Simulated scan of single mutants.
Amino acid sequence: MKTKEGEVNPKKEPGFGRELYSVRESYWIFYQGMRTIRFMFKARRNRELDQKFVERLMLRVTEVNDCALCSYAHSKRALESGMTSEEIQKMLQGIMEDVPAPELPAVMFAQHYADTRGNPTPESWERIVEIYGPSKAKGILGSIRTIMIGNTYGIPWSSFFNRLRGKADPRSSLSYEISMILATFLIPLSFIHALLSDIFRVPLKYS
């Protein structure tokens, strides 16, 4: 996997790719995703986002995180949405020349969101709101956070099964994979945390 420009990863050898998400990060990624996924569905219902737009966002995040499981699943969904095989392959290679101009800022924000491990700059988010308006921007954010959940848990699960086939992910280790698989037991706790935050109207981050 190619190393992202400007990315520093002191815990990995050169060329091994980005550092994988920790158990702590996985908790908060799930929490943030559960709090904003409804905005994605709302934007779809209101026809602010179509399936191709959503899949472009998800493929961009998946390319940054390098999740084989999500690449396969969302390539299939992107094909079903009407995207061509060539366009999908370009997206998974980080080539965005086929992205429609109106969607490009959102796709670039998706890349930035994943590159910063879910911590984009406030200025970048403000720009997305300025371009698309609050409702559509929240739909974009919900789409990005949804695929972040899939990547965070999809990588260790696929890495574990690939390890059993003798194709271990050089970024990963057996202890990491087991710890992340066990961390799925935290999902109900994170879900309840998100639900209570909504009930008590805890402010959303980037909303």
Rank of each mutant, 00 (worst) to 15 (best):
S179C: 11
L49K: 04
F30P: 10
L204E: 12
R18Q: 07
Q51S: 15
E126N: 14
R35W: 08
F185G: 10
Y153S: 00
M1Q: 06
T36M: 00
L186I: 05
G94P: 14
E130N: 12
K2W: 14
R35Y: 06
K205F: 15
R77H: 11
F41S: 02
I37N: 04
S71K: 04
V202T: 14
K2Y: 08
C70I: 00
M180N: 04
Y31S: 10
M91F: 01
T3C: 01
P10I: 08
R77A: 07
T36V: 02
W157G: 14
P134D: 14
P10H: 08
E55W: 04
R56V: 00
A73L: 01
K12L: 12
D66V: 00
V61K: 02
R56L: 06
T152A: 12
L69T: 00
A168L: 13
S135W: 13
E86L: 06
H74D: 02
A101R: 08
L195E: 08
M108Y: 07
V202G: 05
A106V: 01
S85E: 11
I88T: 00
C70F: 01
K2L: 12
L186D: 11
V64P: 00
G17K: 03
E19Q: 06
P10N: 08
Y27T: 11
Q89Y: 06
V202A: 13
F161T: 14
P134N: 12
K205A: 14
E48R: 09
I192W: 08
